[in-house]
Simulated scan of single mutants.
Amino acid sequence: MKSLPLTVLVSLGLATNFLFSQTPTNPNESFTISNEASTEAFSISWWGRSEKIYYLQTSENLIDWAYLPFLEEGADETLTWGLGTNAERQFFRLIIRDHPGGDPKLFDGDGDSYSDWEELLAGTDLRDYYNGILPTLEIIAGGGQWGNVGEVLPIPLSVQVSFGLQNAPVQFTVQGGGALLSANGTSDWSSTLNIRSAIEWPTAAIVYVKLPQQVGAISSLQASVTVAGQTVQIATWAGVYDQQLVPPTNLVAKPMAADRIDLTWTLTHPELPTTVESSLDHGATWEMLEVVPAGVSAHSVTGLEEHRLVKFRLRSGGTLP
Rank of each mutant, 00 (worst) to 15 (best):
E51D: 12
W189N: 02
I195H: 08
V215P: 00
L272N: 11
W265G: 08
P273R: 12
L83D: 04
H307Y: 12
L309R: 12
S3Q: 13
F18A: 06
Q22M: 14
A257S: 14
V240W: 00
D188Y: 11
D108C: 02
S3M: 13
G101V: 14
L56N: 08
G13R: 05
K105E: 13
G295A: 01
S300A: 14
V225K: 02
R196T: 04
L165A: 08
V291S: 02
F20P: 01
G109F: 06
E277Q: 11
R315S: 01
L309M: 08
D64G: 10
Y130W: 14
A204H: 05
V159F: 07
F42E: 09
L193H: 01
D98L: 15
E51L: 04
V152F: 01
T275Y: 07
I63R: 15
V276G: 06
L263H: 11
V291L: 08
T16C: 10
I140L: 07
R49V: 02
G318S: 09
A257P: 01
T136N: 15
T124H: 09
K2I: 09
M256Y: 05
V149C: 00
G229L: 03
A294P: 01
Y208I: 03
N184D: 15
S300M: 07
L211Q: 00
S11P: 02
W237I: 04
Q214V: 12
D108R: 00
W46K: 06
Q166V: 10
I218W: 00
P135L: 06
Q175F: 06
N184T: 13
S297Q: 13
L180Y: 00
N17V: 09
S220G: 14
G111M: 02
S34D: 14
G239L: 01
D262A: 07
T173N: 14
L245M: 07
G74L: 04
Y67E: 15
L56P: 07
R196E: 01
E290Y: 09
D64K: 06
L71E: 15
R127G: 07
E271S: 15
L134E: 09
L320C: 08
V161R: 05
K210E: 04
G123D: 11
R196S: 05
A223S: 10
R313K: 12
